[in-house]
Amino acid sequence: MKQEDELIKLSLAANAAIQDVQMATEKEDENLKEHVSKLIARAKECILAFKSKIVEIENDAVLVDKETDKAALDSLVKKWKQELRQANIMFKRVHLNALAVIEQREKTALIGSGSTALSTRKRIVDKQSAAKGSSSITDSLVHTSRMMAEHLQRSSDTIETLSNSSKGITLTNEELKNMQGHIKNSRSLLTKYGRKEMTDRLFLFLAVAFFLATVLYIIKKRLWSSDIAMESFNAPQENVQDPVIV
């Protein structure tokens, strides 16, 4: 994911800037205060850029409509907020340690005319304190690097899972398209059979009507022929006269 890659780069830059501050306090430098101040300002800028990117992704998550993408962004923001919190804790620790070292060296410089043994002892104490702080910060950086490696592995697994899900969705979409084609063909066949049924019913109705008309015609013709025959039979009887008796 591009957004997570950017967050990883910003996180590494912030951790590197914090480590630069810690390493600067371990060196003998006449301008230590000025040098450390610049490194602290740079570390603050890196942490601020890291925080701004997290806020940007968090704002983008609000505008996302798809639930899966929104959940992924929310999870990403939650995970990197924890990283930002750890970076802030390390920065505060390094900052306080640097201030303590600078203050101690300034005091040592002010009492440089005092006992050499005392100065040496303070220098040793300063170095021991710086070494302890450096060891603690190194452990924190190692822990952070280990967590980032785990996050990268989880991100890789998530990307692979999303890829498999995408393939499954593509196959499902193709199956739905095929089913839609079958449904369309079935609908066409049903429409065709419906029209054929209507045509068959019409032909059947016309055949029945023709049959009834034929039957009526035959019946009517026979009745008409019978009437004519009866009239022909009755006509001679009416015209015959009784014989005259002389």
Rank of each mutant, 00 (worst) to 15 (best):
T120G: 10
G114R: 13
E103Y: 04
T158H: 07
M148S: 12
Y193M: 10
V208L: 12
A98S: 09
E26F: 12
H143P: 15
S113P: 04
F91N: 00
M198R: 15
V101F: 00
E28A: 15
G194D: 09
T108K: 07
D157V: 08
A72D: 07
L48P: 00
Q3A: 14
H95T: 07
S226M: 02
L39K: 06
N164Y: 06
M90E: 09
A131S: 06
L189E: 15
K184E: 05
R146M: 10
S115Y: 04
S52T: 10
P243V: 00
L99S: 09
F203R: 09
A41D: 10
A229V: 03
S37I: 09
G168M: 12
K9S: 13
L12I: 15
F211M: 08
E58D: 14
C46E: 15
W224N: 08
Q82T: 08
E30R: 11
A17D: 10
S140E: 11
E175L: 11
V125C: 00
E150P: 02
K51F: 02
V101G: 00
I169L: 06
L204F: 05
E174L: 14
A207W: 10
P236L: 03
D200W: 12
A209C: 10
L190M: 09
I40G: 00
E67N: 03
I57G: 01
M147G: 05
R187Q: 11
E34T: 05
V246N: 11
V94R: 08
H35C: 14
K51V: 02
S156I: 01
L48C: 04
N15Y: 11
K167F: 08
D69L: 07
K70F: 02
L202V: 13
N234M: 01
L12P: 11
S165F: 11
A17R: 02
R201I: 14
T138R: 11
K27Y: 04
S226D: 15
C46T: 04
K196C: 07
L202W: 08
T116A: 08
L176W: 14
I219F: 03
G114N: 03
S52M: 04
E34P: 01
E4N: 03
L223R: 09
M23S: 11
V62R: 13
T138Y: 06
G168V: 13
M90T: 12
I102T: 01
E174Q: 08
A43V: 00
S37Q: 07
I111P: 05
N59F: 08
F210C: 09
A13N: 05
K192G: 15
K66M: 08
R105H: 01
K92Y: 05
E175F: 04
N234V: 02
E45W: 02
S166M: 06
A16W: 03
Q86V: 06
L32N: 00
A71W: 01
K78N: 04
A117P: 03
D242W: 08
N59H: 13
S226V: 11
T199M: 12
N164P: 09
F203S: 08
V21A: 03
L141R: 06
R42S: 12
S115K: 07
F233T: 01
S156T: 07
K177D: 11
